[in-house]
């Protein structure tokens, strides 16, 4: 029950966030979504058994299922890699990380053929100064 609620809350928050405009919020949404996925995997192993899986235990019936734990570990690491890539994507757009930038660029505009005919927009000068709160 508790795991189910946690997973549901995480998914709701995740979906709300990744339907936002800013790429960073989208990424944060996916971080939450990843947590939800991991919760589902842990739940699949049966959360009524919670003893650490170590050595050869006397009471196997109370030991937590180690297979989903391995799954979750793999999933965390994979999600981490993709998060890093997405973070870099958010910082290589225009001067902010608005996901609607370039969204309506016509496809098949001048392509970056070998002779480099396409001109990307370099970072603009005159960036606003910001005070970090």
């Amino acid at each position: 029950m508790t795991v189910a609620i946690t997973a549901g809350v995480l998914v709701a928050g995740a979906v709300y966030l990744f339907l936002k405009r800013e790429m960073l919020r989208v990424i944060l949404g996916f971080v939450l979504l990843g947590h939800a996925g991991n919760m589902i995997l842990m739940a699949a192993g049966g959360t009524s058994r919670r003893a650490e899986p170590f050595g050869t235990p006397e009471e196997p019936a109370t030991v937590a299922d180690p297979l989903p734990q391995a799954f979750v570990l793999t999933a965390i690491v994979i999600a981490f890699s993709i998060t890093i890539f997405m973070l870099v994507l958010s910082a290589t757009g225009t001067e902010n990380d608005d996901t609607t930038d370039g969204a309506n660029d016509p496809a098949n505009g001048p392509t970056d053929s070998a002779d480099g005919t396409s001109q990307p927009r370099p970072a603009r000068h005159g960036a606003r100064t910001e005070e970090h709160p």
């Binding site: 990744f18 790429m23 996916f30 979504l33 757009g93 996901t99 370039g102 970056d112 001109q119």
Partner: peptide
């Protein structure tokens, strides 16, 4: 020389595939 269109496409591609994988 990557165009903004390529980055926008990549954002869509990555986020959608991540959603699918999850």
């Amino acid at each position: 020389k990557a165009a903004l269109r390529q980055i926008a496409g990549a954002r869509l591609y990555v986020t959608l595939n991540l959603l699918t994988s999850t």
